[in-house]
């Protein structure tokens, strides 16, 4: 009886229209569409995530005072140099609303960062991406879907493994 009821439930709860799967709505979770944002760099250049639709994108949220961010930033830069030719885009989103804005440019120079650094002055991106810990990285595929979310500092191998997945 239990097994028969189980079979009936499997049949009833089947998702024939694939409506249960994520991806159609934007949310900061694996399998969902990456939420759109538009931010400015320190030289007032406006950059939107939609500008990079069709490309593999790594969105890294960070702050200058955060030690794990300091650890992983040189690794991200090194790996970015290796994958840039394969179309990888890295957007470093500084959580400026919880950081010292004057510390960002010296930080970028100190670590020799060449990818765009966006200033999240009002915490718009932090709110959209439900930021709870720094650093947090979102690996976004060419279809705009988040393929992986990594909270905390990443090792080089983890960074490469996730980039390999999104540049396919």
């Amino acid at each position: 009886m239990i097994l028969l009821t189980g079979l009936v439930w499997i049949f009833i709860s089947a998702d024939r229209t694939n409506s249960a799967t994520a991806g159609r709505i934007p949310a900061p979770q694996k399998g969902f569409l990456a939420p759109e944002f538009k931010l400015e760099t320190s030289d007032s250049q406006s950059i939107s995530l939609t500008d990079y639709r069709g490309k593999a994108v790594l969105v890294n949220l960070w702050a200058t005072w955060c030690p794990p961010c300091r650890t992983e930033m040189p690794i991200i830069e090194k790996v970015y140099q290796g994958y840039q030719d394969q179309g990888l885009i890295v957007l470093g989103v500084n959580s400026t609303n919880q950081d010292d804005p004057t510390a960002v440019t010296p930080f970028v120079k100190q670590y020799g960062i060449t990818f765009p650094i966006l200033l999240d002055v009002n915490g718009e991106a932090a709110s959209l991406y439900e930021l709870r810990s720094l650093p947090t990285s979102f690996f976004i595929g060419r279809d705009g879907i988040i393929k992986e979310v990594v909270v905390g500092s990443m090792s080089e191998a983890l960074l490469r493994a996730n980039i390999e997945e999104i540049i396919k």
């Binding site: 189980g6 089947a14 249960a20 994520a22 399998g31």
Partner: peptide, 26 residues
């Protein structure tokens, strides 16, 4: 798992929209 999987929004679906985890649980 068999019951709760039916309410999940992240199920791996197989042919006919059946949820793989429910079949494994059964």
């Amino acid at each position: 798992r068999l019951v709760i999987e039916g309410f999940r929004g992240d199920s791996t679906l197989i042919l006919g929209g059946f949820r793989a985890a429910q079949i494994a649980a059964w």
